[in-house]
Structures are given as C-alpha cells and as structure tokens.
Simulated assay, not measured.
Amino acid sequence: MTFMDEAIFLLEPILKHGWFLKGSKPSCSVNWSRGKECVFGAMTPGNGGKLLSKQAKKINSENFIEYVQYLLDENGSQVLFMDNAPWHTSHMTSGFLEEIRDCVEPMYLPPYSPELNPVEPNWKSVRSKLANRLFENTSELQRCLGKALDETKININWERYLGN
C-alpha cells in the first residue's frame, strides 16, 4: 500500500515568522525568476514516515510514469493511492497502468480531499525547512530541497489512520 502526491516548489521565498525592530519597515529580497522544482513523493506504512521522493522539472504523465516505475523498483507490487490529477488519469498513464496491472493496482482518492493523503503533511514540513530563504537559482533550490526532503520524517499512526 503506497500513498503518493506531488508538490511544486518555486524560487520565490516562502515567508514565515520573523523578528524586526519596532518601527522598522521589513523588506524581503525577491528573485523574479520563474524557476521551480517539482517533487513526486510517496509513503508506505513500512517506511517509518520517510518520504520516497524524486525531483523533476515538471509534473506530467511522462514523469509520473517514470516515478511509478521507480516506486515499483523500490517497493515491488503495490496498491497505489493517488488523487485525480490529470497526469494520474491521462490516456498515456491509463495505458501504462493497464500494462502493469499485475504489479500496481491504482486506487483514486475522492476529489478535493487532501486530508485523506498522508503525504500532504510532508510538503508542509519541507516548506518550513525552506522558509525565509532566497535561492539564487534553481540549482541551489534543488540542492536545498533535496536536503530538506532527506531530513523530513512524519510520524503517522498507520493503524489509526487506516482504521484497523
């Protein structure tokens, strides 16, 4: 059983809390580049809250299929829970999932229900680790994002989550 999701991280700073002198006018540098990094992430009950992630330049059917193949190599046969994003339900993806139906059984979560996907809290945690920083370029964002993904671990009570 594997839950998966995707997230996009921009070069724009993620602003959180800050301390400033009373009466001062805080300012924040901004990199006006439209650079971004996309991440595919998955969790299974047996991986101890660790996110199995892979970075990509864009989220599309081709990269999604590549990520599912990566999950197959890492975890073997599985039931794959995902949302109804266009790249999960495209003609290309449907054909691929049909080809590997002996190894992967796709299960789609109800629309507009991110609370049902245990991967979602990981993105919040990763964004917190990247907060209040200005990245000069996408290479720096990729490096810091990779480190944040490696450090992120969410403790989930799977028994309670799955209703056992």
Rank of each mutant, 00 (worst) to 15 (best):
F20I: 14
S139K: 10
W158F: 13
L149K: 03
L109V: 04
R143Q: 11
P110I: 02
D83Y: 01
L149M: 06
K153I: 11
F9P: 02
I154P: 06
P26S: 10
G46C: 06
F20M: 10
C144K: 12
D73A: 08
L11I: 11
P106L: 08
A42S: 13
I8Y: 08
S29T: 14
P111D: 01
G48H: 06
P26Y: 06
C144L: 05
F3D: 02
H88I: 06
V39C: 09
E105A: 02
V119F: 03
S90C: 03
G18V: 14
H17P: 01
R127Y: 00
I59C: 10
N31V: 13
K36H: 15
H91G: 04
T2E: 07
P86N: 05
P26F: 09
S128C: 04
L134P: 00
G23V: 14
Q55V: 15
P86A: 07
Q142E: 11
E115G: 00
M43T: 15
H91I: 09
G48C: 09
E6S: 13
V104K: 05
A148P: 05
K54C: 14
E136I: 09
K25I: 15
I154T: 06
T152V: 11
L130R: 06
L134A: 00
L145P: 00
S128D: 14
S53D: 13
V126N: 04
M43V: 15
K58T: 13
A131P: 02
E6H: 04
S33D: 13
S27D: 09
E136D: 08
A131N: 10
G41R: 01
L130Y: 09
L71Y: 07
Q69F: 03
N63Y: 14
L51E: 05
P86D: 02
